[in-house]
């Protein structure tokens, strides 16, 4: 569904991402993990066409995205960017309705169907009561959920998310991931929380310095050895008896020093 073929991206002639091959099958939830500056966001920006790859090609639904207009891309892929700042305020309802834009001709007004879709999407993210509030009056986490609702309103087969759980409380982190997972669409998402990645992803790509360091199932990728090599952090990876999923516990330098001192 989403295929990246030896993609390289340079910003101001500096290579940020090099030789990335990536693939998300239809309906798969694919996570991209890696430390800050490893090129996750840059790569996603190329997928949602804010940046152009310097080399390689990106295919969505079998078509090279360069062959599509931006509107065609917007009908295939919805995006939840990292954070969006705007000096202009809108009603929450109007923002969610903007997700219907790619489906509309320029003079077409939103109809009953669009309104219903917007309502459903607000309900899915648990923000129905906020429909008539101003976007700027919402907290960062609430805004993020509205942005997700807007992406849902696009009703696309693919979704690209850039660290969607940033700014969210635990409850809403899980709720947001549950909502996205339940859609059954193809998802490509950058994630910073490895436990969340382990819980929700079918496949993980671990990036380091603009390259894919390794990829595979969460069990294959999230090993103590890989985490040490890529994040330079000691961790214990074990099966969580309550969830049956991987659980990653980090061991800070401070803990190690204190332990050493005790011994």
């Amino acid at each position: 569904m989403i295929d990246l073929d030896s993609v390289a991206i340079a910003i101001n002639k500096k290579m940020i991402v090099e030789d990335v091959v990536m693939n998300a099958e239809e309906g798969q939830f694919v996570g991209i993990i890696g430390p800050n500056g490893s090129g996750k966001s840059t790569l996603l920006k190329a997928v949602y066409r804010v940046l152009k790859p310097t080399h390689g090609a990106i295919f969505i639904d079998g078509t090279d995205i360069r062959q599509c207009t931006l509107k065609e891309s917007a009908l295939k892929t919805a995006v939840v960017p990292q954070h969006s700042y705007s000096s202009f305020d809108f009603k929450v309802k109007d923002i969610v309705l903007m997700g219907r834009s790619p489906h509309k001709k320029s003079m077409e007004f939103d109809n009953e169907t669009d309104l219903n879709i917007a309502d459903e999407c607000l309900e899915k993210v648990g923000m129905t009561d906020f429909a008539d509030r101003n976007f700027s009056s919402l907290s960062g986490g609430e805004q993020q959920r509205i942005v997700l609702a807007r992406a849902l309103a696009q009703q696309t087969k693919c979704m690209v998310l850039d660290e969607p759980t940033n700014h969210l409380d635990v409850k809403y982190q899980l709720q947001l991931m549950d909502v996205v997972k339940s859609l059954g669409v193809t998802v490509l998402s950058a994630l910073h929380d490895l436990n969340i990645a382990a819980e929700y992803c079918d496949k993980l790509y671990m990036m380091k310095g603009g390259h894919v360091y390794t990829y595979g199932t969460p069990e294959e990728v999230l090993t103590a050895e890989n985490i040490k090599k890529v994040y330079d952090v000691d961790a214990v990876v074990e099966e969580n008896p309550h969830t049956g999923r991987l659980s990653i516990t980090y061991i800070s330098d401070r803990t190690k020093r204190m332990r050493a001192a005790k011994e």
Partner: peptide, 24 residues
């Protein structure tokens, strides 16, 4: 510009958002 109201609204959300909603 009457035909552009929808685009003008979307552009107010910022470059990145407008692009992902299909506006060149």
């Amino acid at each position: 510009f009457t035909t552009q109201c929808r685009h003008l609204n979307t552009i107010l959300m910022g470059d990145e958002v407008a692009t992902t909603l299909g506006i060149d």
